[in-house]
């Protein structure tokens, strides 16, 4: 075992990369759940985003176009969920699970001809001389655009939910859909838009895995990140910054176990591989003491007549 092989700066910089897919997926789901909808299809929307982004980036040669396509792909798939749960009033849990299974299968079909292909690389953002500041530069200012976009998204979601009227209406719909309807807010429309936002975010998160983190296409490559995102939203008590913290914890643990594997620690790989999932959940369970934070209408079907 050789721990000196781990470069601390690269190690910490890796947190950001490892956490980004989770941040996107989780912050999207947070908005969806704030409107009172439980979409368990995050994993499915991520993998669809991963293949849509991958295919588009390979065909056009532009990773940014790839991310845009991933967002569209995730949002389109989420529309299926919106149709089932908001129009047909189907059970949200069952619809979400179906969405995940469908996404996993459909992405495998779409991705058949992309196995083994190498995607174009997204360049890191150029901060000029700022990036040369010791330690800070290589850790914080050495990433691609999407990493910073993810951070900005968390801040934006927090600010919108807390300070704007849109955020207030959104929370109101999730808190008591009957009351929101009685006041004249369009519950189904607001929820559908939130579901699409969640889908787009999950899609971008998935594409980050296939275009940057891995980068290649393999079936089922999201490997449960969508499920962790769902758990993260709950255990972060629907608070954006706590969610960010949880995502970095997870990212850090992933980095750590990869580095430990590389350093040849005498623990079976399977234990190392599962450790980030287990530890993140355990830590978050202890952090989330305020159980009353859940939106009161979460998962309940809304019908205007009742």
């Amino acid at each position: 075992m050789d721990l000196s092989a781990i470069n601390p700066i690269l190690f910490i910089a890796g947190f950001f990369v490892a956490a980004t897919p989770l941040i996107f997926a989780a912050v999207g789901e947070l908005v969806v759940e704030k409107t009172g909808v439980l979409n368990l299809g995050v994993e499915g929307m991520m993998i669809i985003g991963a293949i849509c982004g991958f295919a588009t980036a390979v065909e056009t040669g532009s990773p940014l176009l790839g991310f845009a396509a991933a967002a569209v792909g995730g949002a389109v798939l989420s529309l299926l969920f919106a149709f089932l749960t908001q129009v047909m009033l189907a059970n949200q849990v069952a619809s979400g699970l179906a969405l995940t299974l469908f996404g996993l299968g459909f992405s495998a079909l779409l991705g058949q001809s992309y196995v083994g292909v190498k995607p174009p690389r997204l360049a890191d953002v150029d901060f000029g001389s700022l990036a040369e500041i010791p330690i800070f530069g290589p850790i914080i200012l050495s990433h691609d655009l999407i990493v910073y976009l993810g951070l900005a998204l968390v801040v934006a979601v927090w600010a919108v939910l807390k300070y704007t009227r849109i955020g207030l209406v959104l929370r109101a719909v999730g808190e008591n859909h009957d009351a929101a309807h009685a006041l004249g807010y369009k519950v189904v429309r607001i929820r559908t838009l939130a579901i699409m936002f969640g889908g787009a975010c999950a899609g971008v998160g998935g594409a980050y895995i296939s275009l940057i983190r891995v980068p290649q296409w393999t079936e089922g490559m999201t490997a449960g990140i969508g499920w962790i995102a769902l758990a993260l939203v709950v255990f972060a008590s629907w608070k954006p910054f706590r969610l960010l913290l949880g995502a970095y914890l997870f990212g850090g643990l992933v980095q750590l176990q990869l580095n430990l594997q590389g350093a040849g620690v005498a623990i079976p790989v399977e234990y190392l591989a599962m450790s980030p999932y287990v530890i993140t959940i355990v830590v978050l369970v202890f952090l989330s003491r305020d159980k009353g934070a859940a939106p009161a209408s979460l998962g309940r079907i809304f019908h205007a007549s009742s």
Partner: peptide
């Protein structure tokens, strides 16, 4: 002024 359903407890 409604009898039920029109306030949001958490707000």
């Amino acid at each position: 002024v409604f009898q039920h359903f029109s306030l949001f407890d958490a707000l």
